[in-house]
């Protein structure tokens, strides 16, 4: 099987994978990073969102071999020890999750949204969340959390 090397959460990792192995399978099954979830497996729900070279992408629709040499950031790479990332802290503070299944993808997308937008209003947040599905919250608290984290992160 072909070998693949990449950086995940700042650590150099490698593995042998099939051509068809998806990034999300490599993360979960080879590296044991099960924080990245598989929801729909059809590139719609966004639960598998990670950052690749600084951009939010759906890891269920990327081949592991595609990402030779890439820099990947997953939900496990956000907190520093016990100190949550400002977006995670905002989700906690604003009760932006219920069952939590979509949350890793939501948080990774949300960080992408904040990185991409100097100014951020509610309408933009809702529009930018188009690729993430949550079946519990009705999105309202997620939108509030992102708006709050935008203030903290953009200071």
């Amino acid at each position: 099987m072909p070998a693949v090397k990449m950086t995940v959460n700042g650590k150099k990792v490698s593995g042998n994978v099939e051509g068809r192995t998806l990034l999300v399978q490599f993360l979960r099954e080879h590296l044991g990073l099960t924080g990245t979830h598989v929801g729909c497996d059809t590139s719609q729900c966004g639960a598998c969102t990670v950052h690749v070279n600084g951009r939010a992408m759906k890891s269920c629709t990327l081949l592991a071999l595609h990402l030779e040499g890439a820099d990947v950031l997953t939900i496990e790479g956000l907190a520093e020890g016990d100190k949550l990332h400002p977006m995670q802290e905002a989700f906690r503070e604003h009760h932006a999750l219920q069952c939590g299944f979509c949350t890793p993808g939501m948080v990774m997308s949300a960080i992408g949204i904040v990185n991409d937008h100097k100014d951020l209003d509610e309408k933009t947040i809702r529009h930018q969340l188009e690729g993430n599905i949550c079946r519990c919250t009705g999105y309202h608290n997620i939108v509030e959390a992102i708006a709050a984290a935008h203030k903290t992160m953009r200071g």
Partner: peptide
Amino acid sequence: IGDPMVRNR
């Protein structure tokens, strides 16, 4: 087109 993650790829 699509959503932000799709547009990034």
